Amino acid sequence: MPADTFVGMPAGQAGGGVRMIGVAIPVPEPYGTLLQRTRASYGDPLATAIPTHITLMPPTEVAAGELEAIEDHLLGVAHSERPFRIRLRGSGTFRPVSPVVFVALAQGIGGCERVQAKVASGPLARPLPFPYHPHITIAHHLPDDVMDRAYKDMSGYRAEFEAWGFSLYEHGLDGVWRPQCDFLFGNGKRHSTFNG
């Protein structure tokens, strides 16, 4: 089972013409910020470096010259899809296999799986180190008592939103994951901030 799939590598390790990217469905406001603050409240040092998300492609090293083809590929994926509902309900964990507590999806799993399979094709086709399981990490690699508390605290959590598309993220030299392009389901339009 996956650990936090947007951890990446130590800042500055991907250098030269190599970029560290990931693809995910962002969790919209107010839920995104609230869940990020909740994660920070458990003392998770990654909370401020990783925007709240549902991973579609874990951290992946690519050559800078591949980014245009990757963006074109993701544009095609987005164009082939339509928005779908995601309902979050309760907590889950990958322990003891992986030290993660997460908010679980009660609706939208099939949509995430379908989009993930399309994303992980073409220029992004590569074997995954774990079976795909859409979730939102709330605690990662923390002491057992903290993980237990997070699991209990989030057991009654509920939220619902529409997945409008997904974003392409880059792992910065400061260790922070930032969205670089948004891909909208249906029309596929994107906004890109990649700067070469």
Rank of each mutant, 00 (worst) to 15 (best):
C181M: 04
G196C: 00
R114Y: 07
Y31R: 02
P83C: 09
I50C: 10
V23F: 05
I86K: 14
A150K: 05
F161R: 07
H133I: 01
F130Y: 15
G65S: 13
L56Q: 13
R85P: 00
Q13K: 13
G186N: 02
S80P: 02
Y132G: 01
A159Q: 04
P127N: 10
R89Y: 02
L142S: 07
G186L: 04
T137D: 11
Y42G: 03
A11G: 15
Q36G: 10
R190N: 07
A150P: 06
K189I: 09
I50K: 09
F185A: 08
G165Q: 08
G175Y: 08
S167C: 14
G90R: 12
F130L: 11
G175M: 05
W164C: 03
N187S: 08
Q180M: 15
T55L: 09
I25S: 01
A125V: 05
P51M: 11
Q107K: 13
Y151D: 02
M9Y: 05
I109A: 10
L128W: 12
G110Q: 13
C112S: 14
D174E: 14
A24S: 15
V97E: 15
L124M: 11
V176A: 05
T38D: 06
P45Q: 11
Y151C: 01
H53P: 04
Q13R: 14
W177F: 06
P30C: 13
H133W: 09
G156N: 05
E162D: 15
A11S: 15
D72P: 00
P51V: 12
A63V: 04
G17Y: 07
P28D: 12
E68V: 14
S41K: 10
G65F: 03
I136C: 00
G22I: 00
V119P: 06
V103I: 15
G186D: 10
E71Y: 00
G17S: 14
C181I: 01
A69V: 07
A47G: 10
L105S: 09
A11I: 06
P30K: 13
L168T: 07
T93F: 01
R158W: 10
G22M: 03
M147T: 00
E170T: 11
L46F: 10
L67H: 06
F183T: 09
I25Q: 01
R37Y: 11
E29Q: 15
G76K: 15
R114S: 13
W177V: 00
T137H: 10
I109Q: 12
Y132K: 08
T193V: 04
V103M: 08
V23D: 08
E170F: 00
A63F: 12
V119A: 07
Y169Q: 08
R190W: 04
L34P: 01
V97M: 12
